[in-house]
Design a protein around this nucleic acid. Structure first.
Length: 635
RNA sequence: GGGCCCGUGGCGCAGAAUGGACAGCGCACCGGCCUUCUAAGUCGGGGGUCGCGGGUUCGAAUCCCGCCGGGCCCGCCA
């Protein structure tokens, strides 16, 4: 890793200093949206005007003239100051020297360009994916995986020590459905030839069993008994459910890896109780008087979490933790698990090796006979990537942590909206839609679109496109590039939008690879690679260039902003900031590419531009890596 | 009934943390640009009462209140 990048921050620091000296204790600085307003702008004149009973223009002019005289003495990055109606103070830099600073900064920092140390010394646990181990991933799960893994990489890039966890809900109803199918309804444990086990479980057994449950209500009793039986760790059903869960998980991970995710630990829900986490948390809750045994009413015999102190949750009544039959609810186990994540319980999991990520790092899984020495230890915060429908239970967990004496702000629910199917897409699946615009996916009814099928569809299109463009490529190369481009298209589509907005999935739309898409970013990167590839010279010194073209400046500007965007994205937990930035960066490069030839220019210009292209590649590369859009050298 | 989220050109979105400089972009549509580093690109054109109504402010897509439309959550399920 190279040095940390400083250029933009230096500029902002310099301006703050100048303005302070000019008499502004706390100057309001912003980066103008449009380059024509300079590289930085101060809006303090507006708020000051009121106090001073002058017009914003007068105040601005006053400040600007003071700043100007200070400027002349300093010889810093700032070159000129101008006041613009109705009261902006705009600052311009000396671009030829600023450009050198930016490029040198990027080239020296290399893969660390944009990284920060804001998370230095802090450890966080990011939990994502957490798909029930009874089915293959659908596009809604893909949104979780992409957001979660990008978030983890973003935090890592920002200097945090990140642990990635995947919560495996291997007990309860959805697991019982599969066991019911295999043990009592004649479903084989082996999938049909050519079918993945996760798809077999989800598409055939889960859907099939639920159809039967609707038709034959007497089966429900059998299922109820199974759920209890699975909780008995010495039972045959428990053994079978573990086996099935592991087999499904193994297949699910292939999809996750395809999307660029990786994991450190996988925690099994069944182990939350087995390792005594719940027991400990339960007694602590009792100690703190946070829960009570209901003795009358409809919840008689249940242990309830007292929500009366919560402003909003209290309106909906207390929450059941232990059912009258003595078993725990999902929320209860989640509270115990969350307490473990924050390191406020004595009890701990044991782990054994489950497998390896594509980068060969270990994936551990909880196991009572675990033999791997692994401790999460104290984490400063934990982020649970879970869709919005679980806002209430997540808030209950958070509140319960507070009752246990932890700081609830350490528990973060990263909520995102669901992915639904467009009416067209639903019709393609043979569903009657009536006049609805979209249809929510439903696992047990078989209403969903699987991730791999989507990537494969895009890939198929990209393969024919690529083969046409590169008749000289062998099929293997075409296939590899197409895989990256297809994944890039899907990943970008899932992280670029507002997480609070529902995504209406339509296969036709997903196939688009023009405009504001992942391939647009990849393409601009590949074009830049080609320039460097064709250039014979290798390392050239960065030399000042006097008359910069507008497109060069625009590209430099974008490149220079990357570190700020990263920090902003971290602070606000907004991946779309980073994604939108990537688009603007690619766009700036494409404009540069269009009007600023590199290889055909005189040596001086060529060398400058080659370095600029290098700086672009580093910036875009770092950005794409965090987002999870695969990098391709050619396409 | 209570709580949360969304509503910006025909369609899909950005802009909303810290109110500010003409509301940007993509798709679709129309018209240009490949003997020059990959046209998955680029340039130009038409198209918007920022859901509606109030309020705060020198200034509101952005903040506050009310309403309308759409979605989600409120189980001894997970």
């Amino acid at each position: 890793m190279g040095k940390r990048s400083l250029t933009v921050k230096k500029l902002l620091a310099e301006l703050t200093e100048i303005l302070r000296e000019a008499g502004l204790p706390d100057p309001k600085l912003e980066i103008p949206k449009s380059p024509e307003h300079g590289e930085a702008s101060c809006t303090s004149a507006f708020e000051l005007a009121k106090k001073l009973r002058k017009s914003p223009m007068e105040v601005a002019q006053d400040l600007a003239s003071k700043a100007k005289s200070l400027l002349e003495k300093r010889k810093g990055l700032v070159k000129s100051i101008e006041v613009v109606e109705p009261g902006f103070i705009n600052f311009r830099v000396d671009w030829p020297s600023y450009a050198v600073r930016i490029i040198e900064d990027v080239l020296n920092s290399a893969e660390a360009y944009g990284a920060s140390d804001m998370g230095k010394g802090r450890r966080i646990l990011v939990e994502h994916t957490s798909v029930n181990p009874n089915k293959a991933l659908h596009v809604g799960h893909a949104r979780n995986v992409c957001l979660g893994s990008a978030l983890a990489r973003l935090y890592e890039f920002a200097g945090f020590d990140v642990i990635v966890a995947n919560y495996i809900d291997d007990s309860g109803s959805q697991m019982a459905d599969i066991i019911l199918g295999i043990k009592h309804l004649g479903y084989s444990k082996e999938p049909p030839e050519g079918m993945r086990f996760d798809e077999y479980c989800g598409d055939r057994i889960y859907v099939g069993v639920n159809r039967l449950l609707e038709q034959k209500p007497e089966l429900s009793e059998k299922k109820r008994l199974l759920i209890k039986e699975i909780e008995d760790r010495s039972s045959e059903s428990f053994r079978l459910s573990r086996e099935v869960a592991l087999m499904v998980l193994k297949e699910q991970l292939k999809t996750c890896w395809r999307l660029g995710a990786s994991y450190d630990i996988m925690n099994r829900e069944s182990d939350v109780v087995a390792f005594g986490l719940w027991e400990e948390v339960f007694s602590r809750l009792k100690q703190k008087n946070a829960c009570y045994l209901a003795t009358s009413g409809p919840k008689a015999g249940c242990w309830m979490l007292d929500l009366s102190g919560h402003k909003k949750l209290s309106k909906e009544g207390d929450e059941v933790l232990v059912k009258s039959d003595g078993t725990t609810t999902y929320v209860a186990r989640d509270i115990a698990y969350a307490a473990w994540k924050l390191g406020i319980v004595e009890k701990d999991f044991k782990y054994k090796l489950f497998g390896k990520n594509p980068d060969q790092s270990d994936i551990l899984i909880t196991d009572v006979d675990g033999d791997v020495d692994f401790k999460v230890g104290r984490v400063d915060a934990t982020i649970a990537v879970v869709d919005v429908r679980q806002r209430r239970p997540q808030e209950i967990v958070r509140y319960a942590l507070g009752l246990l004496g932890a700081d609830p702000s350490r528990y973060v629910h990263f909520a995102y909206e669901v992915v639904s199917l467009s009416a067209k897409e639903a019709e393609r699946m043979g569903l009657k839609v009536s006049d609805a615009e979209f249809v929510h996916m439903k696992g047990r009814e078989g209403i969903y679109v699987k991730v791999d099928s989507v990537i494969d569809s895009i890939k198929e299109k990209v393969i024919s496109e690529t083969a046409q463009r590169h008749p000289d490529w062998n099929p293997k190369k075409v296939e590899q590039v197409a895989e990256s481009v297809a994944v890039g298209a899907l990943v970008y589509a899932l992280v670029k939008g507002d997480a609070d907005k529902i995504i209406i999935f339509d296969r036709e739309e997903a196939l688009k690879i023009e405009g504001d898409t992942g391939p647009y970013l990849q393409y601009s990167y590949a074009r830049a690679c080609r320039i460097l590839e064709k250039a014979q010279t290798k390392q050239v010194k960065v030399v000042r260039r006097e008359n910069l073209e507008k497109q060069e400046i625009d590209l430099l500007r974008e490149v220079s902003l990357f570190p700020l965007v990263v920090e902003e994205s971290v602070k606000l937990m907004l991946l779309k900031k980073l994604a939108n930035y990537a688009y603007g960066l690619a766009s700036a490069f494409n404009n540069f590419y269009e009007s600023c030839p590199v290889l055909t220019e005189d040596e001086e210009t060529m060398n400058f531009r080659l370095n600029l292209v290098k700086a672009y590649l580093i910036t875009m590369g770092n950005c794409l890596r965090v987002l999870g859009v695969p990098i391709v050298q050619e396409m």
